[in-house]
Design a protein around this nucleic acid. Sequence first.
DNA 1: GTTGTTGCAAATTTTTTGCACCCAC
DNA 2: GTGGGTGCAAAAAATTTGCAACAAC
Lengths: 167, 167
Amino acid sequence: MSSGFSLGSVEVSSSPQERFAEFLQSRGKRITQQRRILVDHVFERHDHFDAEELILNLARLPEGNKVSRPTVYRTLNELVDSGLLRRMSLGGRAVYEHDYGYPQHDHLHCTICDELFEFQSTELQELRDAVARESNFHVTGHRLIISGICAECSSKRHRRQSPLDLI
Amino acid sequence: MSSGFSLGSVEVSSSPQERFAEFLQSRGKRITQQRRILVDHVFERHDHFDAEELILNLARLPEGNKVSRPTVYRTLNELVDSGLLRRMSLGGRAVYEHDYGYPQHDHLHCTICDELFEFQSTELQELRDAVARESNFHVTGHRLIISGICAECSSKRHRRQSPLDLI
DNA sequence: GTTGTTGCAAATTTTTTGCACCCAC
DNA sequence: GTGGGTGCAAAAAATTTGCAACAAC
């Protein structure tokens, strides 16, 4: 057990709040109540979300803890800039996920249930770097999304197609 | 020389016009002047484009060959459905590229000049399929975008930082 | 007290839709 | 002739911005 903050799978030396504070200070920005609420809320659990979901969830908070729509958008941008969140766009809307204290990974995207499943592959990193090297391209990151149908939706589909399940 | 239609790098058995016609007919849709103009325009050369660029280019056509904004959007969707175009979203807006008679590939995205560079990797396909197989995921496609700074922009940056180039 | 921040409303950007007229079949 | 298509204007969806009141430093 270290004294670090455990964020799902990796021990890191400071909490998202602390790290965000550092970031804000480094830019002469302020640590406000709204920013704190947002960071708390976002790092409460590890999942994928979009701005609208976050706004909806925040609206449920007790009075006085509300954060307005523009502030949510503004703060999400700051969280991406600070390296705490990662943004990817999935068919029009932006989707966010933790990018601090969480290992590099990629996604399987089920086009039926819209779920995102994470996976890791060191081979992919190597492949990526090899490709970039060949073009003298200076890599800063990558995003791989494999789309298709997840196991669960596959079996549901099958079931629906079996005679007994037809209406 | 085959009698096929050459589309950049692969010989295919019918032109985009023909293939789109087939698609439309199979759906009881009609082959209109506007759809023809759009397909011609889009497959004239192989590059990446977004709806706005296309609309702007079409506006330059001689009077009588104009296509309205809603029709461009509607037809782009049909072209994606027909398998002639592929859509990917790059920071908010949708970007299109040929997907017919063109080999599967992925992209390096330069975040400075916003250019997309294509590359092919069979290893990536294998890796993708292996990952999916492990999760019983039925793959229909994937999208890998490696982001970073291209060779040209890298050298420009360097130059700008050299003493002689400072104002 | 100064300067950055918030919330509101309104603007922007990108894409979609309702509807009357039009044209491919 | 009829049903799908087009253009127009307007709506929708997602995100950003101007500004006056406000709060962190």
